[in-house]
Computed example of a mutant assay.
Amino acid sequence: MSKVLARRGRWSAYRIVLLQAAVAGGTSILFFALWGAQYGLSALAGGLIAVLPNFVFATLAFSHAGAKASGKVVWMFFLGEAVKLLLTIVLFAIAFGMLKTPFMPLFSCYLLALLIPWTAPLYFKQN
């Protein structure tokens, strides 16, 4: 039963991550079409900085479920959030160090992708 609960929670989180990836991809394509390859690449990097840590968090946070594993559930949420924060910092450092593109598209796409989990109840029916 706990594996089923973990799988359901993980799938719900993955749906939000997929929606984030779709919005980030669409935003990157829009920047590419309107302003060129450098802006599109910068927006894509911002989207990846938002999506990849959230995917890692969802994988770690929903690896356990159930009353018997409550200690593991809490521990994995804390670990997932710590890894998410560190991964975000590392990805921003890599982007700032390697990309020689404007950072406005990077931050725009990053912030747009971060808004998705806040508005998720508007898109998904909760069972």
Rank of each mutant, 00 (worst) to 15 (best):
R8M: 08
G9I: 02
G9L: 10
S12P: 04
Y14L: 10
R15Y: 01
I16C: 13
V17K: 00
L19H: 06
Q20T: 08
Q20M: 15
A21F: 10
A22D: 03
V23A: 13
G25C: 05
T27P: 09
F31N: 10
F31S: 03
F32I: 00
G36K: 05
G36F: 07
Q38N: 10
G40P: 08
A43L: 14
A43C: 11
I49D: 01
N54A: 11
V56P: 08
A58Q: 09
A61N: 02
F62A: 00
S63D: 08
S63K: 15
A65H: 12
G66F: 04
G66V: 06
K68V: 04
S70Y: 05
G71L: 00
K72T: 08
K72S: 05
V73A: 06
V74L: 05
W75Y: 11
M76A: 13
L79H: 12
G80Q: 03
A82V: 09
V83R: 05
K84L: 06
L85I: 07
L86D: 08
V90N: 12
M98D: 10
M98Y: 15
M98S: 14
L99G: 04
P102K: 01
F103Q: 14
Y110A: 05
A113G: 12
L115H: 10
W118N: 07
W118L: 05
T119P: 04
K125P: 01
N127I: 04
N127R: 10
